[in-house]
């Protein structure tokens, strides 16, 4: 009788420990699922496939940026320039997508290269000049916006070859193209971060830059590569945005950098470096997307949505701090 209760107690403790580990790992997913359940009860329209695809389409651009931002934050950095770079890339890509000029791929690759170049510059300044990422990318944010305005003369660049619309507006097997792009970027980023030497070094540099040096890691090179990769993805996001708006808008993308940082942060990427996953960031982006969409469906005013979003971001970080204690 007595021994049974001890066994029971032990099982109970084991269960608690397992629950604890599970909660630590998947707390954010759980929150997401709870949100989905509540929203689907409150609004029957929420779970309709059309609406769900809509959510994914809406988050796709921010989520693609957030993938790269995840790498940067894991190294202990930050990128404030994404929104402006998106605009710069959008006008460049748009200008390369006029009908009967170049093949469409030029616009896509060209846009991505412009993005990668901005990232490479930021990364070089951060590492070689030892300037805090906040400042280096703040500078890039302002410069890229100015460059977008100069390049486009301050006006939207329109008149695309029709196939350019396909990037953001098309469907493959009934599923919007941006979802395929997001899926591809997610898989590639996950593999890079978890299954390559490069990825391990990213975590190591953010986890302890001194120890990374002693371990023979060339941090300068790795960090520049991280910013370049993030820039490349921001470039892709810029192409997607130009396609969605059917115009290269030099004033577009304002605030995207903060949305991307928010997605990563809600997803558990730690700003002290060394912690974070692509999976977490995707869930973070989905939480923002579902929240926007659900609150819209429930007719919550856009003003209140802002407050709710802000509270959730800070709440996520508080929770993260608690569980890591």
């Amino acid at each position: 009788m007595k021994s049974e209760s001890i066994v029971e107690k032990k099982n109970n403790e084991q269960f608690k420990a397992m629950l604890n580990i599970f909660m630590k790992k998947y707390a954010i997913l759980l929150i997401f699922i709870v949100m989905v359940i509540i929203l689907s009860i409150l609004s029957p329209a929420f779970l309709r496939p059309r609406n769900i695809m809509n959510v994914f389409r809406q988050i796709s651009i921010i989520a693609v940026i957030a993938m790269g931002v995840t790498f940067i934050i894991i190294t202990g950095g930050i990128d404030l320039s994404s929104g402006s770079v998106v605009a710069l890339v959008a006008v460049v890509a748009a200008s390369l997508a006029h009908p009967n000029q170049f093949p469409l791929i030029f616009a896509i690759i060209g846009g991505m290269l412009v993005g990668a170049l901005t990232g490479c510059i930021s990364g070089t300044i951060v590492t070689k000049q030892k300037i805090p990422a906040f400042i280096a990318t703040l500078g890039m944010m302002i410069v890229a916006r100015g460059a977008a305005l100069i390049y486009s003369d301050g006006r939207p660049i329109t008149n695309f070859t029709p196939s350019f619309d396909f990037i953001s507006g098309g469907y493959i097997f009934g599923i919007p193209t941006p979802i395929y792009i997001l899926a591809l970027v997610t898989v590639v980023s996950h593999i890079l971060l978890k299954h390559t030497k490069f990825g391990k070094y990213v975590y190591a540099i953010g986890g302890n830059s001194n120890a990374a040096l002693v371990s023979g890691i060339n941090s300068t090179r790795v960090v520049i590569m991280v910013y370049t990769y993030a820039g490349l993805l921001t470039g892709l996001a810029g192409v997607m945005l130009a396609s969605r708006l059917s115009a290269g808008q030099p004033t577009a993308g304002v605030g995207y950098e903060l949305d991307a940082i928010a997605a990563a942060t809600i997803g558990g990427v730690s700003h002290s470096g060394g912690i974070g996953t692509i999976f977490g960031t995707i869930v973070g982006a989905l939480i923002i997307g579902v929240l926007n969409n659900g609150l819209d469906l429930l007719n919550v005013s856009a003003y209140w949505q802002q407050i709710i979003k802000g509270v959730i971001i800070v709440g996520a970080v508080i929770m993260d701090k608690r569980k890591n204690r």
Binding site: T196, G207, N208, A211
Partner: peptide, 30 residues
């Protein structure tokens, strides 16, 4: 200060200075 990567696993802490041993063209052999 200069040894442990505190947020990383025991495995990654052991492997970090000899990653070339476990990778082929950059990809880790799990």
């Amino acid at each position: 200060l200069t040894g442990c990567f505190l947020p990383l696993s025991v495995r990654d802490n052991i492997a970090i200075a000899s990653m070339d041993k476990y990778t082929t063209s950059g990809f880790i052999n799990p």
